[in-house]
Each structure stands twice: as C-alpha cells, then as structure tokens.
C-alpha cells in the first residue's frame, strides 16, 4: 500500500510551490522592464482578455443586476424601504459583486485558456524553443498577459457594474414601478468615491492574481510532480488553476475588504 504523505512533506511541498510561484512573479515583473517592448503582443492579449470577454461580462452583469434588484426589492418591501433599492444595488455591485463576479467570469473564460495554452507550449517544447532563440519567455509570453489582465479586468468590472445597474433599473423601475429619479438619486447619494476605489483596487489585484496563477500553472507544468505531463497533465493543471484562482479571488476579496473598510 502506498504510504500517505506526512504533514511535514505536504507543508514542504506547499512552501516549494509558493516559492516557485513567487520566483515566477518576480521574473515576470522584471521582464516588464526589459526591451524590446512589443505593442503588438500587448494588443493581442488585450483583445483576448478584454474585448473577447465583453459579451459574456455584459450578459452576466445584466442578469446579476436584475437578480440583485429582485432580491433586494423583496427584502426592502418588508421594511417599507423600497426607495433604498438604488443604493443597495449600487453598493453591492461596486464593492463586491462587480469585482468578484467579473474576476470569476474572467477565470472561466480567459484564465483557463491561458493556462492550457501555456501548458501545451511547455509540453510541445515551444517555451524551450524561445529560450534557445534567446527570447525571454517571461517577456514574450507572460508580461503581455499580466499587463492585459491588470488593464482589462478593471475595465470589464466597470462594464459589469454599469450593465448591472441598468439590470437593476429594469427590475426596479420598469417591472416594479419605482421612480427612476429615486433609483439613481439614492444610488448617487450612497455610493461614495471610496466604494468605487475599493472596487477598482480589487479589480486590479484580481486581474494580477488571475493571470499570475493561470500562467504560472501552465508555465511550470514540468515542475509539477503530482501526475502526468501530457494532455492529462494540461487538463489537471487547468482545473487546478481555475480552482486555485477562484479561491485566491474570494480570499483576497475578504482581505482587501477588511483592509479598506
């Protein structure tokens, strides 16, 4: 019977993995400052991370805004405070739901694809080929993705929030006859610049986390000693990347909320 790994070896492996991920991030940030800078590579990633995620973000934002408004309306009616619907929708979307749900959508659509793409590049020797051509793979592959993530996730979050607010407007104002003026005025009075800043900071951190975790998993596929290296390995690390990135988003969301509030 195979022996169970001891707690010490699990902790050891975890520390090694964290160390490898830390070195990966350091190398990526370092490579951001190494010329030549390629605008083409960055634009390609912005197209992939940002522009091509737009539709899914708009659809998700619309339905999330609608369901949030529906739930809050049902609750606020019980307390006779329906006029607060705009504030409730605005605050929940800008501070929590917008950044977190956008990040989760980006993980599913973009993070998994990045992880699989880079993992396949690793098993097909394309990353070694870059090294042998004297092209820094961190500069060529990872830093444009990190920059695109940090730039696009806040913009996607803003789009999610705006669409969500109009989803809430549809439910509150059009379906439940709330006054449009009250909906927006209330939101305007309650949502402060601090709330917007919180959402903005969160979305930048989430963008970095998503790309860092997804790319690191694919890039270091060969260092992962838990299983197969080929297609099975790519499938396993893609699943792991999605799970770890999602948990990291939720955990950092709590940390950032606690720090900023």
């Amino acid at each position: 019977m195979a022996s169970q790994p001891s707690n010490e070896s699990i902790l050891n492996n975890l520390l090694i993995r964290l160390g490898i991920a830390g070195i990966f991030l350091y190398e990526t940030i370092r490579s951001l400052f190494i010329p030549p800078y390629s605008l083409n590579l960055l634009l390609k990633q912005i197209l992939f991370v940002g522009a091509r995620s737009m539709l899914v973000i708009i659809i998700a934002g619309l339905f999330v805004g609608m369901v949030v408004a529906l739930q809050f309306y049902d609750t606020l009616v019980r307390f006779g405070s329906v006029s607060l619907l705009g504030s409730a929708v605005g605050l929940s979307l800008t501070r929590e739901l917008g950044p977190v749900l956008t990040a989760l959508m980006v993980i599913g659509r973009t993070g998994s694809a990045m992880c699989a793409e880079i993992g396949i590049m690793r098993i097909e020797n394309q990353i070694d080929a870059l090294e042998c051509m004297a092209i820094d793979p961190y500069r060529f592959l990872i830093s444009p993705r990190i920059l695109a993530g940090v730039l696009c996730v806040p913009i996607l979050t803003a789009i999610f929030i705006v669409v969500g607010i109009f989803g809430g407007y549809f439910v509150g104002v059009i379906l439940f006859d709330l006054s449009a003026g009250s909906y927006f005025q209330n939101m305007n009075d309650t949502v402060l610049s601090r709330d917007l800043l919180m959402g903005f900071i969160k979305s930048i951190v989430f963008g970095l986390l998503i790309v860092w975790i997804s790319c690191e998993k694919g890039f270091n596929l060969h260092l992962d000693k838990n299983g197969a290296y080929g297609s099975e390995g790519v499938s396993r690390i893609t699943t792991e990347a999605v799970v770890i990135a999602s948990i990291a988003i939720l955990f950092s969301d709590y940390l950032l909320s606690a720090l900023i509030l």
């Binding site: 590049m121 097909e124 020797n125 394309q126 070694d128 080929a129 042998c132 051509m133």
Partner: peptide
C-alpha cells in the same frame, strides 16, 4: 536548435 516536433508557435 531544431526541435523534434519543430516547436513552431
């Protein structure tokens, strides 16, 4: 370096 499978992007 020419790799076994070409290693083209």
């Amino acid at each position: 370096v020419a790799f076994q499978n070409g290693a083209l992007f």
